Computed example of a mutant assay.
Amino acid sequence: MMTALIRYTLATVIHSQRYLAPVMVFVVCVATASGSNQGPLPGVYAVNSGALLACAAWLSIAVISVEEPAHRAIAIVTAGSAVRVLIATLVTDCLVLAAMALGGLALPLLMAPHSITGADVLVGALAHLMCGTTGLAIGLLCSRLVFRRQGYAFLTASACVAAALLVSGMPPNTLFKHLANTGHGDTVLGSTTALATTGPALLAAAAVATHVISTRKD
Rank of each mutant, 00 (worst) to 15 (best):
M1F: 14
M1V: 12
M1L: 10
M2E: 12
A4Q: 15
L10G: 05
I14D: 11
Y19C: 09
A21C: 09
V25R: 08
F26Q: 11
F26G: 07
C29P: 02
A31D: 07
T32I: 15
T32K: 15
S36L: 14
S36Y: 14
N37C: 11
Q38E: 14
G39Q: 03
P40S: 08
P40F: 07
L41F: 06
G43D: 01
A46K: 01
V47T: 13
N48Y: 06
N48D: 09
A54M: 13
A54G: 04
C55M: 14
A56H: 02
A56D: 00
A57D: 02
W58H: 10
W58V: 11
S60R: 07
I61Y: 09
A62M: 08
I64K: 04
S65R: 13
V66I: 08
E67H: 15
A73E: 10
I74F: 10
A75E: 14
T78H: 12
T78Q: 15
G80S: 06
S81P: 12
A82Q: 10
A82Y: 06
I87S: 06
I87R: 07
I87A: 12
A88L: 04
D93Y: 08
C94N: 10
C94A: 13
A98Y: 04
M100D: 06
A101D: 01
L102P: 03
G104R: 11
G104H: 02
L105E: 00
L107F: 13
A112S: 15
H114T: 01
H114V: 05
T117L: 10
T117E: 09
G118V: 01
G118K: 00
V121H: 01
V123N: 00
G124Y: 04
G124N: 02
A127T: 00
H128M: 05
H128W: 02
T134I: 15
T134C: 15
I138S: 04
I138Q: 00
C142L: 07
R144F: 08
F147Y: 09
Q150M: 10
Y152H: 15
Y152M: 15
Y152W: 14
T156C: 12
C160P: 00
A162S: 11
A162K: 05
V167L: 13
S168Q: 09
T174Y: 06
L175C: 07
L179Q: 00
L179E: 01
L179A: 04
A180V: 14
T182A: 08
H184Y: 09
D186A: 09
V188N: 04
T192A: 12
A194F: 10
T197C: 11
T197V: 14
T197F: 14
T197N: 06
T198C: 08
A201K: 07
L203Q: 03
A204H: 03
A204E: 02
A206H: 01
V208L: 13
T210A: 01
T210N: 06
T210S: 06
T210W: 08
H211Y: 12
H211K: 11
D218Y: 09
